[in-house]
Each structure stands twice: as structure tokens, then as C-alpha cells.
């Protein structure tokens, strides 16, 4: 009896453990420690953005202080006005250009990629599988590697230095077609397409009346991701627009930051202005962006 006694207190613990541990992590309520660690993570994510705003609102001395300034100043409008009135950077024009490029590219990607995605998902045609395989294979090829030749192509077309050169390579993406196809396969019932066919609906009518309404959520996700990526693109716009009067906002910011004497409160004021549209998008469409990224992960 005495030999059995010692393990006894351990027994209930052992019996409890499976009940507690057997739960999947996502069913386990987060403890204080988890919240604390998440809060620290969030602090790291937010701080550079917050500090961009601090410097954008400060005078020159804020950057030469120890401990560093962490409270916003009152010079935001002054700095912004300075950025916009610089003669050799064209900041206002660059913001307009960024809007034009991002809107055109996003609209084009949504339209052409959903058309192609629809064809690959719901229509039968010879070569369909081979062509789709081609799309999937090109997903991982970084077209940045063709950048030298792209510059030469744009030179032959006479587009270098214009927004056309920035817009054209972004008009369609293999990812867009892939993503749209996946979504349409899963969300547009074949029966719906069939019955519309029986009623004599043409392919375009099916696309317009059945597919488009069904894929609105996917359009939102792809649109947001495309807009963000296009707005933030730097390397290609820098190459093709260098020295032109039509920079995008990213190129304009790098112009602000070049030269012998860089005024960082201006640079960061410009950077902040160019970041705000994206922060607003994240605030409004964050749910969609998160879902899009996570859905993409499971499918791939």
C-alpha cells in the first residue's frame, strides 16, 4: 500500500493534462503572457511608423536629441508645405502619378485576370491544362530578372520616362489569374453556369451576370494586394523614370533623400504622406487583406 501511495498525487495531474493539452491551440484561450508578447510584437510593428510621424512633425533639432524625440511636434503642416513646394522634386505630381498608376494597374489586373481565371475555371477549350500549367510555372519567375531587357523594349517603344512604361508591365499578373481561377472553381456552382447556358446566355453574359457578382470578395482581396504592391514598387519606376518630370511618389521620396544635405523631417513627411493612403486601405480592408493572404496560404 505504501508503495502505491506516492504516485497517487501525481495521478490527477496526469489525468488532467490530456484534457488541457488535448485541445488544439486555436481552441485554447490566450493567457496574459500571450497578450503581453503580442503587444510587444505590435509595438515593434507600429513604432517605426509612429516615429516617422514624430519626425515629420518636428523641427531639425528633433533628430539631434538624446534620448530621442518620441512625441510629435507641431510642424507637420510646415514640413508638408515644404515638401510640396520643392522645385526639383515634383512631389504633388508624383502623388497624382502614383494614384494613376496604381488605379489603372489594379483595374486592369482585376478585369483581365478575372476573365482569364473564369475561362480556366469554367470553360472547356483545347490546351486549357497546358496553358494553365504555364501560368502556374511562371508564378515563381521573378520578372525583375528581365529588367534590363524590359528597359530596352520600353526604349524601342519610346515609353521610358513616361507612366506608360511603369503601367504596362503591371497590367496582368500570373498570380491574379491563378488566384481568380481558384476562387471561381470553388465559388461559382457549375449548375448555375449550366442553367444560364440552357437559357441561351453567352459566355460574356455568364461572366457578367453570374461570375462577377460571385467573386466580389476575391476582387476586393486581389485589388487591395495589387494596389499596395503597385503603389510601393520602387526599382522599376526608379529605372524607367529617372530624370523625368513624372516620378511616382516612391521615386520622389528617394529624390528627397538624395543630395549632400538631406533634411530628414522633409523626407519623412513625404514618406508619411505616401504611406497614409495605404494605412487607410489597411484600416478599411484589413479583414479582406488578412483573409486573402491566409486563403492563399492554405491553397498553395
Amino acid at each position: 500500500m505504501t508503495a502505491v501511495a506516492p504516485p497517487r498525487p501525481a495521478a490527477p495531474v496526469r489525468r488532467n493534462r490530456p484534457a488541457l493539452m488535448g485541445r488544439a491551440p486555436q481552441d485554447t484561450p490566450a493567457g496574459v503572457g500571450t497578450y503581453l508578447l503580442l503587444a510587444v510584437t505590435m509595438l515593434f510593428a507600429v513604432f517605426p511608423l509612429y516615429w516617422m510621424f514624430v519626425i515629420a512633425t518636428s523641427n531639425d533639432e528633433a533628430l539631434a536629441k538624446l534620448p530621442p524625440a518620441v512625441v510629435p511636434g507641431d510642424r507637420f503642416m510646415t514640413n508638408v508645405e515644404e515638401v510640396f513646394s520643392l522645385q526639383d522634386v515634383f512631389f504633388a505630381a508624383s502623388m497624382v502619378n502614383s494614384v494613376i498608376v496604381s488605379v489603372v494597374v489594379t483595374a486592369s489586373v482585376l478585369f483581365f485576370c478575372s476573365l482569364a481565371g473564369f475561362a480556366f475555371a469554367k470553360l472547356r477549350f483545347a490546351g486549357r491544362n497546358a496553358l494553365m500549367l504555364f501560368v502556374v510555372l511562371t508564378l515563381t519567375v521573378p520578372n525583375q530578372l528581365g529588367i534590363v531587357a524590359l528597359y530596352i523594349v520600353m526604349g524601342k517603344l519610346g515609353w521610358n520616362g513616361t507612366l506608360l512604361a511603369v503601367i504596362a508591365p503591371g497590367l496582368v499578373t500570373a498570380f491574379g489569374v491563378f488566384y481568380m481561377r481558384q476562387f471561381i472553381v470553388n465559388s461559382v456552382p457549375d449548375e448555375l453556369v449550366e442553367s444560364a447556358r440552357v437559357d441561351g446566355a453567352s459566355t460574356m453574359r455568364v461572366y457578367w451576370n453570374i461570375v462577377l457578382p460571385a467573386i466580389r470578395p476575391a476582387l476586393a482581396v486581389l485589388g487591395l494586394l495589387t494596389f499596395v504592391a503597385t503603389w510601393n514598387d520602387f526599382q522599376w519606376p526608379l529605372i524607367t523614370l529617372s530624370g523625368s518630370d513624372y516620378p511616382t511618389s516612391m521615386v520622389a521620396i528617394s529624390d528627397l533623400a538624395s543630395g549632400n544635405y538631406v533634411i530628414y523631417r522633409r523626407v519623412l513627411a513625404g514618406a508619411f504622406i505616401a504611406t497614409v493612403p495605404l494605412l487607410i486601405m489597411l484600416f478599411i480592408g484589413g479583414r479582406q487583406i488578412v483573409r486573402g493572404i491566409m486563403e492563399g496560404a492554405v491553397k498553395s
Partner: peptide, 8 residues
């Protein structure tokens, strides 16, 4: 934007 964060 990477441009913005890189400046920061």
C-alpha cells in the same frame, strides 16, 4: 512602402 520604412 519599403521606401518609407527604409528611410526611417
Amino acid at each position: 512602402p519599403i521606401v518609407a520604412s527604409s528611410m526611417v
